[in-house]
């Protein structure tokens, strides 16, 4: 099968070396979506790659300790919940669903509030895509737990 330690020390070392940087790049992509290409979907994809690369290169005990199997569905649910809660918060301030500009906090303008709302939504989307992709990979590799 595909998972488990790759029987070549070059690939193992490079896989272990690269995956934290890919993780960092994914976080950068998620957070930098306001000013350049990127956002939650692409960043979630990079985060999922950073979780999958140890699984195909490193020993199984180590790789599945870094990102456990139950992390996938958990992160998918957490991201989805973050998105929904971010949509629900403006309703307590009298706004519409997902209308972050209606939230009134002293000292923060409405446009700044929408900026922050976009950031929270992007993080939620990134977590959801990360969780979904890792879950599909684990399921195809027959490693999922019920």
């Amino acid at each position: 099968m595909m998972t488990g330690a790759y029987p070549s020390v070059v690939v193992r070392v490079v896989g272990a070396l690269l995956s934290p940087f890919i993780l960092l790049f994914g976080l950068y992509i998620v957070a930098h979506g306001h000013y350049g290409p990127g956002g939650g979907f692409a960043g979630g994809g990079f985060l999922a790659v950073a979780a999958i690369l140890p699984r195909v290169t490193l020993p199984e005990s180590l790789a599945y300790k870094l990102v456990p199997v139950h992390f996938g569905p958990l992160m998918g649910g957490v991201g989805m919940l973050l998105f929904l809660l971010c949509g629900l918060v403006p309703m307590f301030f009298g706004g519409m669903f997902l209308d972050y500009g209606a939230v009134e906090i002293a000292g923060i303008a409405a446009s700044r509030m929408r900026y922050l709302g976009i950031l929270v939504v992007e993080i939620g989307v990134g977590l959801a895509v990360f969780g979904a992709m890792v879950t599909i990979f684990d399921v195809l590799m027959d490693r999922s737990e019920t």
Binding site: G39, F41, G45, V129, A132, M133, I136, V139, L140
Partner: peptide, 20 residues
């Protein structure tokens, strides 16, 4: 199209799960 690509990957994942 951005969202359609991501949904396409999800569709491929479900299709491959069905194939396995």
């Amino acid at each position: 199209i951005l969202t359609a690509i991501v949904v396409g990957v999800g569709v491929v994942g479900v299709a491959l799960a069905l194939l396995v």
